[in-house]
């Protein structure tokens, strides 16, 4: 792809680690929030222990760390609305989509209708999705 001004690349943010035990989940989110300003084609992937980043009811009061999980629900306001969770990773961990936050965005092309932005995808679909990316940032 030509790297001229105005080029739009497919950026994938690959999240594979649980939150709090290491800083990767939080600092990945910080990159994504900045990236939103660059008008690139952004996808977020949560696989392996990364699926734990999206659990609802996170409560960090007892560990003295900031609970940043609410930020995920704000991603829709940043036009980040392609959030993929690997189905097999959920299943292997005894989780289902009901254990995760509901993530939505308002579609400006559809009278600001509220739409789902979290998609549970199978291994094959995720494989194809990763392969079509121009840039993969792993956290």
């Amino acid at each position: 792809m030509e790297t001229a001004e105005g080029v739009v690349k497919k950026f994938c943010y690959m999240n594979r680690k649980a939150p709090y035990g290491t800083i990767y989940a939080l600092e990945s989110l910080e990159v994504v929030l900045i990236a939103a300003a660059f008008d690139q084609d952004i996808s977020l992937v949560f696989a392996d222990d990364g699926v734990y980043q999206l659990t609802k009811d996170q409560d960090t009061d007892g560990i003295g760390m900031k609970n940043f999980s609410k930020t995920y629900s704000a991603l829709g306001d940043y036009d980040i609305n392609k959030i993929y969770v690997e189905k097999e990773s959920l299943e292997e961990r005894g989780l289902s989509v009901d254990d995760l936050q509901a993530l939505t965005y308002e579609d400006e092309d559809d009278d600001w209708a509220e739409k789902n932005s979290l998609f549970v995808v199978g291994r094959e679909e995720l494989t194809a999705l990763i392969d079509e990316q121009d840039v993969v940032l792993s956290f």
């Binding site: 790297t3 950026f11 910080e30 900045i34 990236a35 690139q40 940032l137 792993s138």
Partner: peptide, 20 residues
């Protein structure tokens, strides 16, 4: 500098290689 420099590197470079 800011994180925008990372995104810009992803846009401008032909390949982005991460070591971690």
């Amino acid at each position: 500098s800011g994180l925008g420099q990372l995104i810009e590197a992803g846009i401008q470079a032909d390949r982005l290689v991460t070591f971690g």
